[in-house]
């Protein structure tokens, strides 16, 4: 049981990294990774919202949608629940935990339309995970997002001081750099299966 959960966690972080292998959450990955501190703040907020969204959508899906044969409403219900949830969290944090709000709050509205959050929720349903498995998979997805963001922020900080050919400057070189970071993650292929073999 624990073995299985850890296997799900590690798969989501390393071999099936949300950003670098599944291409979910590319916008913040390219847009917010310029500086290390914003990258960390954004990823922390993503982890938080992913875990929360999974914890809330799992019972809704199980008790409301599946029971009443309404699975086809998943997309609509999930996106609305996530949007409402993010708003609610923002209001609560602002009022009761201002310190946390100052650290994460500014990233919250951005996350509503982030495909990584909706993606993890839908993937959990598609995989048929139970509650614990869903939570671990979301946690892994969030941590994987953070790992990719932090690594890439480092790469981009070094890129700033590089002499890049004119036609590659800006976005093209950033994408090629992302490609190289993604190659490094290919190296993890098969590692999870072997650890738990």
């Amino acid at each position: 049981m624990t073995k299985e959960l850890f296997s799900i966690l590690l798969t989501a972080i390393l071999t099936q990294n949300f950003v670098l292998a599944k291409f979910l959450g590319i916008c913040p990955f390219l847009g917010v990774s310029k500086k290390l501190n914003t990258a960390v703040g954004m990823s922390a907020a993503v982890i938080f919202v992913m875990a929360l969204a999974t914890a809330v959508t799992y019972p809704i899906n199980k008790l409301l949608l599946v029971k009443n044969d309404l699975e086809y409403l998943q997309t609509i219900v999930f996106i609305l629940v996530i949007a409402a949830l993010v708003q609610l969290v923002e209001i609560i944090l602002k009022k009761y935990i201002p310190a946390l709000y100052n650290a994460l709050g500014i990233y919250l509205p951005l996350i509503t339309t982030n495909c990584a959050v909706l993606g993890v929720v839908i993937l959990n349903v598609d995989e048929g995970y139970n509650f614990a498995q869903s939570m671990f998979s979301s946690l892994g997805a969030g941590l994987g997002f953070m790992l990719a963001m932090v690594m890439f922020a480092g790469v981009r900080e070094r890129l700033e001081s590089c002499d890049v050919p004119k036609f590659m400057q800006g976005l093209p070189i950033t994408l090629v750099a992302a490609s190289l970071v993604s190659v490094s993650f290919l190296g993890f292929t098969g590692i999870v299966e072997n650890i738990f073999a």
């Binding site: 670098l20 292998a21 291409f23 036609f167 590659m168 976005l171 093209p172 070189i173 950033t174 994408l175 090629v176 992302a178 490609s179 190289l180 993604s182 190659v183 993650f185 290919l186």
Partner: peptide, 13 residues
């Protein structure tokens, strides 16, 4: 996956 980033980058350039 790396090929996706790479081709997009080159197309963009």
């Amino acid at each position: 996956p790396p090929g996706g980033f790479f081709v997009y980058g080159i197309l963009m350039a």
